[in-house]
Every structure is written in C-alpha cells, then in structure tokens.
C-alpha cells in the first residue's frame, strides 16, 4: 500500500516536472521567435556631450517646409530554388523567422518613413547685403533665397520594414535618397522663390522707414 503511494507520488512528480519543462521551453521558444523585442526598454549610458565647433551665423529663415517621404530598397530572389533555400535559411534564424514563414519572393527589403524639415531663407554671413538711399527710396540689395537647413533626425525616422540583414551604409544610402527627395519636392514647389514674399514683409516690419522700400536680389 505504502509502496503504491510512493510510486504514484513519483509519477506525479515526474509528470509535474515534464509539464514545467514544457512550459519553460515553450516560454523560451516564444521569447526567442515570437515576442516583440522592439528595444523600447533600452537604456543608454550617460556620456558627455562634446562641443566641436561654435559658429556665428546670420541666417534669415522665412519658409519652413515639412515633408514626409517613403524610401525603399528591395531585392528579389532570382530563381525558385534560391527562394526556397533563402526562406529555409530565414526560418533557421530567430530574427528572420517571421519573414521566412511567409516564404515570399523578397530576399531583402528595407522600407523607411522619413520626416524632415527644410528651412529656406538668406545667408547674410556668407553674402553681403546693402541698404542705399536712392532717389527718395531705400534700396535694399539682398542675396537670392536658398536652402539653409535640412533637419533629419532619428526621432523622425521610422524603419517600417526590415527583411533580411542590412548594413549601416545601406541605411545611410536610403537616408540620402530621402534627403534628395525632399530637396526635389522643395524645388518643385519653388520654395526659394516663395521665400521672397515673407522676407520682404519681414524687412519692411524691421526697417520702419518713411521712405518707400525697394528690394533687389542679386
């Protein structure tokens, strides 16, 4: 009787141990393959900020252009055999398994959504401006407006799809593409020309002259 009870107890312990092992292994597999490791809990170490250069500038910004562009880099498998092999390799890699399971024809894909801010205006440090009273008028000679700043930051950059392994220089290439696209949009919208109207309004507000103001660009 006692022997039977001990035997049943042993079986119970063994079964409980098996269940515990299954639960632990299941949890590890879930964490390794399916859990969201988005890096939201990362904490960087506190390192000092180095001031490398301080520059005195004189830039009058009159147009702020906010743009959002999508940039993409895509590589496809060339043959079906390559596709099968590639997807099997992805299945073996915990970081890429989710892309391998769909077994698509995409070998690598990196899609980014980049938000940026472009500032247009005139640079009065690099180029001179003159104010000359002439025939009862105040003639202001200014340089033509130009693109003065392009603000791209990691905070405004989203990696939307990352399928396959990508190098830093490849991400930088896409960022450059985003930058070029934004500049092209600014050109298309003729923002350098549009920067003149608010510039003239701003100067008239600053000058407060009784004489008529004439603004010329060189």
């Amino acid at each position: 009787m006692v022997r039977n009870k001990i035997s049943e107890l042993r079986i119970l312990i063994v079964r409980l141990a098996i269940i515990a092992v299954i639960v632990i292994v299941g949890y590890i597999i879930y964490q390794r393959y399916f859990a969201d490791h988005s890096g939201d809990d990362y904490a960087i170490e506190d390192t000092p900020l180095h001031v490398e250069e301080i520059r005195k500038i004189v830039e009058l910004n009159t147009i702020k252009f906010r743009d959002e562009v999508v940039v993409d880099s895509l590589e496809l498998y060339k043959t079906t055999a390559e596709q099968i092999q590639g997807n099997l390799e992805k299945l073996m890699d915990p970081d890429q398994a989710k892309h391998g399971i769909t077994s698509s024809n995409v070998k690598r894909r990196l899609t980014m959504v980049v938000k940026g801010e472009l500032l247009y205006g005139i640079d009065l440090k690099r180029k001179d401006f003159t104010v000359i009273p002439k025939d009862g008028k105040l003639v202001i000679s200014l340089p033509n407006p130009e693109l003065l700043s392009i603000n791209l930051t990691p905070k405004n950059t989203d990696i939307f799809v990352e399928n396959g392994t990508w190098k830093d220089y490849e991400r930088q290439l896409l960022m450059r593409k985003a930058r070029t696209k934004m500049i092209a949009s600014g050109e298309k919208l003729r923002l350098k020309e549009k920067a003149k109207v608010p510039l003239e309004r701003l100067l008239k507000q600053l000058i407060r002259s009784t004489q008529p103001i004439v603004i010329e660009y060189y």
Binding site: L49, N61, I63, R66, D67, E68, L202
Partner: peptide, 23 residues
C-alpha cells in the same frame, strides 16, 4: 508625399556642432 509649408521669420545667429558617443 505629405508636406506642409509655413511662413516663418527667424533669425539664426549661433550654430553649435556637438558630438556624442552612444553606449
């Protein structure tokens, strides 16, 4: 593309270039 154009009137007069090591 999604964009927004705003008229501003800012005078930038100082520019700092800073560096940081992210660990």
């Amino acid at each position: 593309e999604i964009f927004e154009i705003r008229t501003i009137g800012t005078l930038s007069t100082s520019e700092y270039t800073v560096g940081k090591i992210i660990k």
